[in-house]
Amino acid sequence: MILAKDISFQYDANHQFDIPDIKLDEGEELLILGKSGSGKTTVLNILGGLLKPQSGTVEIGNTSIYDLKGAALDKYRGANIGVIFQKPHILSPLTVEENLQLAQYFSEKREKHLIEKMLNDLGIAHKKNSKISSLSEGEAQRVSIARALVNNPKVILADEPTASLDDENAAMVIHMLKEQASRMKSALIVVTHDQRVKEHISNYILMGGVS
């Protein structure tokens, strides 16, 4: 499902990131733990097709994503990779439902029923016509999860999804991610420094920081 091999990346000569090979099959979970500055987010960006590494390949569903050019990579990412950020980053001029519609529009998927289903599954169907500013933090994070998952992605990447949440909401978010990933048979990768997540995902690797 996702395979990252021989990846090397550096912002400059003194910041060589040591990036382990990663291989996950459908339905599998992985936790990448590390302190801030250890390159966790860089790894996530590389895996998500947002940042091209100096060398190595990232394959998602048998497609080597960095061999795709320009818009093709954007469309592939939109359709096959769901990214969840530390902060919700929902587009505030749009309503909850429109945020999800936009994700389908950009990735050129037109499966309206998935929007309804995702909103129902995450318990935010009653907020579908709400403005983003009227949502609580927990609800906002759920909307961002719904938007990442609305296209049934092959890989779900979550960057510090629990960092700004209390214990209860953090557990809820991790539970939701795991549940949806296993339902959609997606590979789930969570990048975090939050030790609370370890209780839920046993398979983890540690990032050692700058070498």
Partner: peptide, 8 residues
């Protein structure tokens, strides 16, 4: 964010 969800 739009780019991440598939905008070119």
């Amino acid at each position: 964010v739009m780019r991440t969800i598939g905008a070119s």
